[in-house]
Simulated assay, not measured.
Amino acid sequence: MIGILVFPNFQLLDAAGPIAAFEIAGRLAGAPASIKVIAAEPGEIASSSGVALLARGLRSIAGLETLIVAGGQGVRAAASCPRILAFVRKAAQRGCRVASVCSGAYVLAEAGILDGRHATTHWRHTQHFLASYPQIKLAPDRIFARDGNIWSSAGISAGIDLALAMIIEDHGEAVAQAAARQLVLYHRRGGGQSQFSSLLELKAPTGRFAPLLSWAREHLDQALTVERLAEHAGMSARHFTRAFIAETGATPSKAIERLRVEVARQRVQGSSEAIELIAQSAGFRDPERMRRAFIRSFGQPPQALRRAARAG
């Protein structure tokens, strides 16, 4: 059984996205999914849009195998509800697959089940989440993260990506791909793909690290280690890393990778220069490293982007 945990003022798509993905996958696999919406108090639970879902109470749920906690405007109240926290904690302790969508990560964090684990959440919450839960290994620019039986995902639509990853585990790659096509998704994103909003921020940085990133963009062919970036910023490596993540929502290494990817993408799509030469000048050193970075960022290798640009 799959349980979708909601609360007053939850984000509707945080719940509806995974529900649709599991429903379609179950039908395609010939094993219809048993999906229940649950809440601390049974009855109609209104989302932030005003649209309500009919939820069962926590005590009425038995045989739960997957629990997905929605996010939304009401998450702070949910994250301070002892009944919800106890329910989530007990589900994790039983080995249930427990996940959060967007700010639902706050519920998992308050329940204590993210302590010492890798997790992610919406990029807008990065700074507050890092300050509130230093014991959690936040990966601020991932679409979703998994650490054992605990999963977490970024904003809203990333809940569908998380559900599709679970569907692979339950029904295999073929069913997940078919479900993605049914959902009319351009491609199924892997967990390591960057949150697009963070990419936009780094392309036009305006904060205190703007000069550093502008300098780095002009020196992409060099070894831009965390130590060298910190030295250029006049900070210790440890302090620099935490401050950089808090402001940009990405680690320094991820930021540099994105700058390299963006410069390389422009040259891949706008010229007939050899992929090997582009990889070297953008700082990737070899084409395979650049190929993996392109797939993380765009879901496609450089050659596919070049073919699409020429076809266009």
Score class of each variant (00 low, 15 high):
G72P: 05
A86L: 08
C96V: 15
V98W: 05
S100P: 08
R76T: 13
A91L: 12
C96P: 02
V69L: 01
A91R: 11
C81R: 14
S80R: 13
A70G: 04
C81M: 09
L85F: 05
G74F: 07
V98G: 04
A105W: 02
R89K: 15
A70K: 03
C96I: 11
A92T: 09
A78R: 04
V98C: 07
V101L: 05
K90T: 12
C96Q: 10
A105M: 01
C102A: 14
A91N: 10
G104Q: 02
S103L: 07
R89Y: 03
A105C: 06
C96S: 05
V75E: 02
P82H: 12
A92L: 08
A91W: 05
A99Y: 12
A99G: 14
Q73G: 14
R94V: 00
G74Q: 06
G104D: 03
S80C: 04
S100E: 06
R83C: 04
I84G: 04
Q93K: 14
S80F: 00
I68Y: 04
C102E: 09
K90E: 15
G71S: 11
C81K: 10
Q73P: 03
C81A: 15
A77H: 09
I68P: 04
G95F: 12
F87D: 10
R89A: 15
F87S: 11
S80D: 12
A77K: 13
V98F: 04
V69R: 00
F87G: 10
R76G: 00
G95Q: 13
R94P: 00
